[in-house]
């Protein structure tokens, strides 16, 4: 726990302060990590969100039909996507795909002495390895969430359009009248918090690997499990915070 907090502090220092003290991080590496962490996860995140939007529209239609409230399906899809499911589903995908990859990569580097080699070369591993991944995650998770929101709404639309005979214009109208800008914003705030948790946990677990390939496997599992757990708890806290404030 203490080492995790230290890592957070170090990340903040190397991201915010060090660049102004003549020790910048590598911009090129940030973009490389953005592609590795974010862009590569885009198809998966989009597909998952699409299927979630689809499912939710169908489930919602089933329940709302009984009450004669079919016209509320777009509201339901949009609101739950923007506020809750969009950030959550995308974060789950990114944990499974990118968080575990980061832990495995850093863990392997730790085991094969690469991180020690960096230290001996007087290259701070936090600056060189962690900060680009951190920044890439902080930027790409909200970006993916936006794509996920849209794809989910497309999923909801396809059910409403092809199965429930909604006009496209009516669907769009219904989905945007109920939701507010704040719904979108709160979802994005959530995804920023998730990004922070996911990447710091992944890096922490990766840098703490001990004992060979087995240790790397163990750390990767740990990273996924803890990220999911902490992310879901944080989601509950944030939802509560937005709900009661």
């Amino acid at each position: 726990m203490k080492s995790y907090l230290t890592l957070n502090g170090q990340i903040l220092y190397w991201t915010l302060l060090a660049p102004f003290r003549g020790q910048p991080f590598k911009i090129g590496e940030v973009f490389r990590q953005m592609v590795a962490i974010g862009v590569r996860a885009l198809p998966m995140a989009a597909l998952t969100s699409f299927s979630i939007g689809l499912t939710m529209a169908m489930q919602g239609a089933g329940a709302l039909r009984k009450m004669g409230g079919l016209s509320y399906v777009p509201d339901l899809v949009t609101l739950s996507l923007l506020r809750e499911l969009g950030p959550l589903i995308v974060a789950v995908i990114v944990i499974g795909r990118s968080g575990s990859a980061v832990t495995a990569e850093l863990g392997t580097m730790k085991v094969s002495e690469e991180i020690e080699a960096l230290e001996v070369m007087a290259i701070n591993p936090i600056r060189f390895l962690v900060v680009p991944r951190f920044l890439a995650m902080m930027i790409m998770l909200p970006v993916l969430t936006v794509f996920g929101d849209w794809m989910g709404m497309v999923g909801g639309w396809s059910v409403c359009h092809f199965a429930l005979d909604f006009e496209t214009a009516a669907y769009i109208h219904r989905s945007v009248t109920r939701a507010e800008t704040w719904d979108l914003l709160s979802g994005l705030i959530k995804s920023v918090v998730f990004a922070w948790l996911i990447i710091t946990i992944a890096c922490h677990k990766g840098l703490a690997v001990e004992g060979g390939a087995e240790g790397v496997g163990q750390a990767t599992t740990d990273s996924v499990v803890w990220s999911l757990l902490i992310m879901l708890i944080a989601n509950a806290i944030l939802t509560g915070f937005f709900f009661f404030s």
Partner: peptide, 17 residues
């Protein structure tokens, strides 16, 4: 500062993959 003045060859080479 000290580390910039020496080099080290690791057992496995420790090249960044």
């Amino acid at each position: 500062r000290i580390r910039r003045r020496f080099g080290m060859l690791f057992q496995s080479g420790a090249l960044l993959q």
